[in-house]
Protein backbone atom coordinates (compact mmCIF):
# COMPACT_ATOMS: atom_id res chain seq x y z
CA UNK A 1 0.00 0.00 0.00
CA UNK A 2 1.52 3.29 -1.06
CA UNK A 3 -0.47 5.74 1.05
CA UNK A 4 -2.55 5.54 4.21
CA UNK A 5 -1.31 3.83 7.34
CA UNK A 6 0.69 0.60 7.52
CA UNK A 7 1.84 -0.77 10.85
CA UNK A 8 3.85 -3.95 11.05
CA UNK A 9 4.88 -5.68 14.27
CA UNK A 10 4.85 -2.49 16.31
CA UNK A 11 6.12 -2.95 19.88
CA UNK A 12 6.36 -0.71 22.88
CA UNK A 13 7.86 -1.64 26.21
CA UNK A 14 7.70 0.63 29.26
CA UNK A 15 10.41 0.21 31.89
CA UNK A 16 12.97 -2.58 32.03
CA UNK A 17 13.85 -5.74 33.89
CA UNK A 18 11.27 -7.26 36.19
CA UNK A 19 9.08 -4.16 36.07
CA UNK A 20 8.94 -3.97 32.28
CA UNK A 21 5.49 -3.74 30.74
CA UNK A 22 4.85 -4.61 27.12
CA UNK A 23 2.09 -2.22 26.11
CA UNK A 24 2.25 -3.18 22.43
CA UNK A 25 3.32 -6.71 21.50
CA UNK A 26 3.55 -6.59 17.73
CA UNK A 27 0.63 -4.62 16.40
CA UNK A 28 -0.31 -4.91 12.76
CA UNK A 29 -2.73 -2.44 11.15
CA UNK A 30 -3.52 -1.17 7.75
CA UNK A 31 -5.78 1.75 6.82
CA UNK A 32 -6.29 2.75 3.23
CA UNK A 33 -6.60 6.37 2.05
CA UNK A 34 -10.22 7.51 2.31
CA UNK A 35 -10.99 4.83 4.89
CA UNK A 36 -12.19 5.30 8.47
CA UNK A 37 -11.47 2.41 10.83
CA UNK A 38 -12.36 1.96 14.46
CA UNK A 39 -9.88 1.02 17.17
CA UNK A 40 -11.62 -0.35 20.24
CA UNK A 41 -10.48 -2.00 23.38
CA UNK A 42 -10.81 -1.85 27.14
CA UNK A 43 -8.89 0.52 29.35
CA UNK A 44 -5.21 -0.45 29.60
CA UNK A 45 -5.32 -2.45 26.38
CA UNK A 46 -2.76 -0.22 24.64
CA UNK A 47 -5.03 2.07 22.60
CA UNK A 48 -3.48 5.29 23.80
CA UNK A 49 0.06 3.90 23.52
CA UNK A 50 -0.65 2.93 19.91
CA UNK A 51 -2.11 6.37 19.20
CA UNK A 52 0.90 8.11 20.78
CA UNK A 53 3.32 5.94 18.81
CA UNK A 54 1.42 6.64 15.61
CA UNK A 55 1.37 10.33 16.53
CA UNK A 56 5.17 10.30 16.97
CA UNK A 57 5.00 11.51 20.55
CA UNK A 58 6.46 8.35 22.06
CA UNK A 59 9.10 6.14 20.52
CA UNK A 60 8.20 2.48 19.90
CA UNK A 61 10.70 -0.22 20.82
CA UNK A 62 10.38 -2.12 17.57
CA UNK A 63 8.44 -2.65 14.38
CA UNK A 64 7.75 -0.51 11.38
CA UNK A 65 5.32 2.37 10.64
CA UNK A 66 4.52 3.88 7.29
CA UNK A 67 2.39 7.03 7.11
CA UNK A 68 1.27 8.51 3.82
CA UNK A 69 3.73 6.38 1.92
CA UNK A 70 6.73 7.42 4.04
CA UNK A 71 8.43 4.99 6.40
CA UNK A 72 8.65 7.00 9.59
CA UNK A 73 9.78 4.23 11.92
CA UNK A 74 11.69 1.05 11.25
CA UNK A 75 13.23 -0.08 14.50
CA UNK A 76 14.14 3.58 14.97
CA UNK A 77 12.84 6.95 13.75
CA UNK A 78 13.44 7.51 10.08
CA UNK A 79 12.53 11.19 10.19
CA UNK A 80 14.58 13.79 12.03
CA UNK A 81 11.94 16.43 12.73
CA UNK A 82 9.04 14.72 14.48
CA UNK A 83 7.26 18.04 15.05
CA UNK A 84 7.27 18.75 11.33
CA UNK A 85 6.06 15.19 10.76
CA UNK A 86 3.14 15.73 13.15
CA UNK A 87 2.39 19.13 11.65
CA UNK A 88 2.49 18.08 8.00
CA UNK A 89 1.42 14.40 7.96
CA UNK A 90 -0.81 13.81 10.95
CA UNK A 91 -4.05 15.44 11.95
CA UNK A 92 -5.20 15.09 15.56
CA UNK A 93 -8.74 15.17 16.86
CA UNK A 94 -9.05 14.86 20.62
CA UNK A 95 -11.69 13.66 23.02
CA UNK A 96 -12.23 17.28 24.02
CA UNK A 97 -11.82 19.88 21.29
CA UNK A 98 -8.88 21.61 23.08
CA UNK A 99 -9.23 24.72 21.00
CA UNK A 100 -6.86 27.55 21.88
CA UNK A 101 -9.14 29.80 23.95
CA UNK A 102 -7.45 33.07 22.99
CA UNK A 103 -7.71 32.52 19.22
CA UNK A 104 -10.92 32.89 17.29
CA UNK A 105 -12.32 29.91 15.40
CA UNK A 106 -10.63 30.80 12.11
CA UNK A 107 -7.20 31.30 13.66
CA UNK A 108 -7.54 28.12 15.71
CA UNK A 109 -7.70 26.25 12.42
CA UNK A 110 -5.45 28.52 10.35
CA UNK A 111 -2.67 28.33 12.94
CA UNK A 112 -1.47 24.96 11.64
CA UNK A 113 -0.83 26.01 8.05
CA UNK A 114 0.68 29.23 9.39
CA UNK A 115 3.11 27.14 11.47
CA UNK A 116 3.96 25.27 8.27
CA UNK A 117 4.92 28.57 6.66
CA UNK A 118 1.80 29.15 4.58
CA UNK A 119 0.86 32.86 4.32
CA UNK A 120 -1.84 34.00 6.76
CA UNK A 121 -4.39 34.86 4.07
CA UNK A 122 -4.00 31.48 2.36
CA UNK A 123 -4.17 29.68 5.72
CA UNK A 124 -7.39 31.47 6.66
CA UNK A 125 -8.85 30.75 3.23
CA UNK A 126 -8.23 27.04 3.77
CA UNK A 127 -9.90 27.24 7.17
CA UNK A 128 -12.98 28.95 5.79
CA UNK A 129 -13.30 26.31 3.05
CA UNK A 130 -13.39 23.62 5.71
CA UNK A 131 -15.92 25.59 7.76
CA UNK A 132 -18.23 25.57 4.74
CA UNK A 133 -17.90 21.79 4.47
CA UNK A 134 -18.43 21.34 8.21
CA UNK A 135 -21.24 23.88 8.41
CA UNK A 136 -19.59 26.20 10.91
CA UNK A 137 -18.85 29.09 8.57
CA UNK A 138 -21.22 31.49 10.36
CA UNK A 139 -19.17 30.99 13.54
CA UNK A 140 -15.83 31.70 11.87
CA UNK A 141 -15.16 34.86 13.90
CA UNK A 142 -16.48 33.54 17.20
CA UNK A 143 -14.27 32.66 20.13
CA UNK A 144 -14.24 28.98 21.22
CA UNK A 145 -16.09 29.82 24.44
CA UNK A 146 -19.00 31.10 22.33
CA UNK A 147 -19.50 27.77 20.55
CA UNK A 148 -21.62 24.79 21.49
CA UNK A 149 -19.92 21.43 22.16
CA UNK A 150 -20.82 20.14 18.71
CA UNK A 151 -19.54 23.28 17.01
CA UNK A 152 -16.29 23.10 18.94
CA UNK A 153 -15.79 19.50 17.87
CA UNK A 154 -16.43 20.39 14.23
CA UNK A 155 -13.84 23.17 14.48
CA UNK A 156 -11.44 20.62 16.01
CA UNK A 157 -12.09 18.34 13.03
CA UNK A 158 -11.36 21.25 10.70
CA UNK A 159 -8.08 21.79 12.55
CA UNK A 160 -7.22 18.12 12.05
CA UNK A 161 -7.88 18.40 8.33
CA UNK A 162 -6.55 21.84 7.47
CA UNK A 163 -3.02 20.77 6.58
CA UNK A 164 -4.52 18.06 4.38
CA UNK A 165 -2.61 15.32 6.20
CA UNK A 166 -2.64 11.78 4.83
CA UNK A 167 -3.44 10.49 8.32
CA UNK A 168 -5.86 11.56 11.03
CA UNK A 169 -5.81 10.14 14.54
CA UNK A 170 -9.06 10.73 16.40
CA UNK A 171 -9.04 9.97 20.12
CA UNK A 172 -12.60 9.39 21.34
CA UNK A 173 -13.93 12.29 19.25
CA UNK A 174 -17.57 11.58 20.11
CA UNK A 175 -17.24 11.00 23.84
CA UNK A 176 -18.77 14.30 24.95
CA UNK A 177 -21.58 14.22 22.37
CA UNK A 178 -25.08 12.80 22.29
CA UNK A 179 -25.98 10.06 19.77
CA UNK A 180 -27.17 12.40 17.05
CA UNK A 181 -24.13 14.64 17.22
CA UNK A 182 -21.80 11.65 17.58
CA UNK A 183 -23.14 10.11 14.39
CA UNK A 184 -22.91 13.47 12.66
CA UNK A 185 -19.22 13.70 13.59
CA UNK A 186 -18.50 10.22 12.25
CA UNK A 187 -20.41 11.06 9.05
CA UNK A 188 -18.24 14.14 8.69
CA UNK A 189 -15.07 12.14 9.21
CA UNK A 190 -16.17 9.67 6.53
CA UNK A 191 -17.00 12.52 4.14
CA UNK A 192 -13.66 14.20 4.77
CA UNK A 193 -11.76 10.92 4.44
CA UNK A 194 -13.28 10.38 1.02
CA UNK A 195 -12.90 13.99 -0.05
CA UNK A 196 -9.26 14.38 0.99
CA UNK A 197 -8.12 10.74 0.61
CA UNK A 198 -7.26 10.67 4.27
CA UNK A 199 -6.74 7.53 6.37
CA UNK A 200 -8.52 7.94 9.68
CA UNK A 201 -8.23 5.88 12.85
CA UNK A 202 -10.94 6.53 15.39
CA UNK A 203 -10.21 5.30 18.91
CA UNK A 204 -13.50 4.82 20.68
CA UNK A 205 -15.48 3.16 23.43
CA UNK A 206 -18.67 4.61 22.06
CA UNK A 207 -21.22 1.84 21.40
CA UNK A 208 -23.31 4.27 19.32
CA UNK A 209 -20.69 4.69 16.63
CA UNK A 210 -18.97 1.29 16.58
CA UNK A 211 -21.58 -0.17 14.18
CA UNK A 212 -20.80 2.56 11.65
CA UNK A 213 -17.26 1.30 10.93
CA UNK A 214 -16.72 -1.08 8.03
CA UNK A 215 -13.55 -2.35 9.65
CA UNK A 216 -12.68 -2.43 13.31
CA UNK A 217 -9.40 -3.22 15.03
CA UNK A 218 -9.73 -4.65 18.49
CA UNK A 219 -6.80 -4.28 20.80
CA UNK A 220 -6.31 -6.32 23.96
CA UNK A 221 -3.13 -6.77 25.97
CA UNK A 222 -1.12 -5.02 23.30
CA UNK A 223 -2.22 -7.16 20.41
CA UNK A 224 -4.65 -6.17 17.64
CA UNK A 225 -6.98 -8.29 15.63
CA UNK A 226 -9.20 -7.15 12.82
CA UNK A 227 -12.93 -7.62 12.51
CA UNK A 228 -15.36 -6.65 9.79
CA UNK A 229 -17.74 -4.00 11.00
CA UNK A 230 -21.36 -3.53 10.24
CA UNK A 231 -20.74 -0.37 8.28
CA UNK A 232 -24.23 0.83 9.07
CA UNK A 233 -25.70 3.75 7.25
CA UNK A 234 -25.84 7.06 9.18
CA UNK A 235 -29.46 7.66 8.25
Amino acid sequence: MGKGILIEGLKKRYGSGDTAVDALKGVDMQVAPGEVVGLVGPSGSGKSTLLKALGAVIEPTGGRMTLGGEVIYDNGWKVKDLRALRRDKIGFIFQAPYLIPFLDVTDNVALLPMLAGIPNAEARKRAVELFKALDVEPRAKAMPSQLSGGEQQRVAIARGLVNRPPVILADEPTAPLDSERALAVIRMLNDMARKFETAIIVVTHDEKIIPTFKRIYHIRDGVTYEEAGEGRSFD
Partner: peptide
Protein backbone atom coordinates in the same frame (compact mmCIF):
# COMPACT_ATOMS: atom_id res chain seq x y z
CA UNK B 1 4.81 16.41 27.03
CA UNK B 2 2.76 16.71 23.83
CA UNK B 3 1.36 13.29 24.73
CA UNK B 4 -0.60 15.04 27.51
CA UNK B 5 -2.97 16.24 24.79
CA UNK B 6 -3.82 12.65 23.99
CA UNK B 7 -5.90 10.84 26.56
CA UNK B 8 -4.89 7.73 28.47
Amino acid sequence: DPAEAIGG
